[in-house]
Simulated scan of single mutants.
Amino acid sequence: MNNIPAYKTELISDENKVQYLFESKGNIFIIKAIEYSPFKKQDGKVIYNLGFGDYDFSNGTIIDDINSNNGDMRKVFSTVLNTVPHFFKTHNDDAIWIQGSDSSNEFKEECKVDCKKGCDIENGECKKFNRRIKTYRYYINKNFTNLIREYIIFGYTNEESPTLVQYVPENDYIGILVFKKK
């Protein structure tokens, strides 16, 4: 899916989720997890939420609202991207939903409490809002021509009444829906 080096992953799968674990070897060693969990059925297809973050060994889940700043972001993101084609090998009739943990109005409210960026939250400005989805959009925009050969991509608009539309590079979206072409 991309040509940036990636970490080797270990697959853990059951009927509730598909997880890929790997070790981030930046400034320190951190176990990370990429998780595909079913959250909606539509037209006979299961839509899986793509989650990513530090792995919590105590309960087998991910902590997706933390910034590790481990110095290996490109390799970590490449590892996330490399699981997409692997996921679709066994779930080719399903879809992947991508939305950052920082893409909700609740995030803005929580961020407002201890904002260190000098945002004008009262007027809708939050510099941390949508940072995670912007990373995915940047990758899709940069590789759109190649990606649409294998995938059908939709964007979820950031409006008062959000809608799902055909993905157009450079447009703003708060979520992305991806299907594998047959």
Results as ranks from 00 to 15, higher is better:
residue 4 I to P: 01
residue 4 I to N: 09
residue 4 I to C: 10
residue 5 P to H: 05
residue 6 A to S: 15
residue 7 Y to R: 05
residue 8 K to H: 04
residue 8 K to E: 09
residue 9 T to E: 08
residue 10 E to T: 13
residue 12 I to A: 09
residue 13 S to L: 11
residue 13 S to Y: 11
residue 13 S to M: 06
residue 13 S to P: 01
residue 16 N to I: 06
residue 17 K to L: 12
residue 22 F to V: 01
residue 23 E to T: 07
residue 23 E to F: 09
residue 24 S to F: 08
residue 24 S to C: 11
residue 26 G to Y: 07
residue 27 N to Q: 12
residue 30 I to V: 15
residue 31 I to L: 13
residue 32 K to E: 10
residue 33 A to D: 08
residue 35 E to K: 03
residue 36 Y to G: 00
residue 37 S to G: 01
residue 39 F to C: 00
residue 42 Q to V: 01
residue 42 Q to K: 04
residue 43 D to R: 00
residue 43 D to G: 05
residue 46 V to R: 03
residue 46 V to D: 01
residue 47 I to H: 00
residue 47 I to A: 00
residue 47 I to E: 00
residue 49 N to W: 01
residue 53 G to Y: 02
residue 54 D to Y: 12
residue 56 D to L: 12
residue 56 D to F: 15
residue 56 D to P: 07
residue 56 D to Q: 13
residue 57 F to M: 15
residue 57 F to P: 13
residue 57 F to V: 15
residue 57 F to A: 12
residue 59 N to V: 12
residue 60 G to Y: 04
residue 60 G to T: 01
residue 62 I to Q: 04
residue 62 I to D: 00
residue 62 I to H: 00
residue 63 I to H: 10
residue 64 D to K: 07
residue 65 D to L: 14
residue 66 I to L: 13
residue 68 S to V: 15
residue 68 S to I: 14
residue 71 G to M: 06
residue 75 K to C: 08
residue 75 K to L: 14
residue 76 V to Y: 05
residue 76 V to W: 06
residue 78 S to Q: 01
residue 78 S to G: 02
residue 78 S to D: 04
residue 79 T to E: 03
residue 80 V to H: 00
residue 80 V to C: 04
residue 80 V to L: 06
residue 80 V to K: 03
residue 81 L to F: 02
residue 82 N to K: 11
residue 84 V to K: 02
residue 85 P to L: 04
residue 89 K to S: 07
residue 89 K to C: 07
residue 89 K to G: 15
residue 90 T to Y: 13
residue 90 T to C: 06
residue 91 H to M: 05
residue 92 N to W: 08
residue 93 D to P: 03
residue 93 D to L: 13
residue 94 D to V: 09
residue 94 D to H: 11
residue 95 A to I: 01
residue 97 W to N: 01
residue 101 S to F: 12
residue 102 D to H: 04
residue 103 S to C: 15
residue 105 N to Y: 13
residue 107 F to P: 05
residue 107 F to Q: 10
residue 110 E to W: 09
residue 110 E to N: 14
residue 112 K to P: 00
residue 113 V to Y: 14
residue 113 V to M: 08
residue 114 D to T: 08
residue 114 D to G: 11
residue 115 C to Y: 03
residue 117 K to T: 11
residue 118 G to Y: 06
residue 119 C to G: 03
residue 119 C to Q: 10
residue 120 D to T: 05
residue 120 D to K: 06
residue 122 E to A: 06
residue 126 C to K: 03
residue 126 C to R: 03
residue 127 K to Y: 13
residue 128 K to Q: 15
residue 129 F to L: 08
residue 130 N to G: 07
residue 130 N to L: 14
residue 132 R to N: 14
residue 132 R to S: 13
residue 133 I to W: 05
residue 136 Y to Q: 02
residue 139 Y to L: 09
residue 140 I to V: 07
residue 140 I to L: 07
residue 144 F to D: 01
residue 144 F to W: 10
residue 145 T to Q: 15
residue 145 T to D: 15
residue 145 T to G: 13
residue 149 R to C: 11
residue 150 E to R: 05
residue 150 E to D: 15
residue 151 Y to G: 05
residue 153 I to L: 10
residue 154 F to W: 08
residue 158 N to L: 12
residue 159 E to W: 09
residue 163 T to E: 14
residue 163 T to P: 04
residue 164 L to A: 08
residue 164 L to R: 07
residue 166 Q to A: 14
residue 167 Y to E: 06
residue 168 V to N: 09
residue 169 P to E: 09
residue 169 P to V: 13
residue 170 E to L: 12
residue 172 D to L: 10
residue 173 Y to P: 02
residue 173 Y to I: 07
residue 174 I to S: 04
residue 176 I to H: 07
residue 179 F to Y: 07
residue 181 K to C: 06
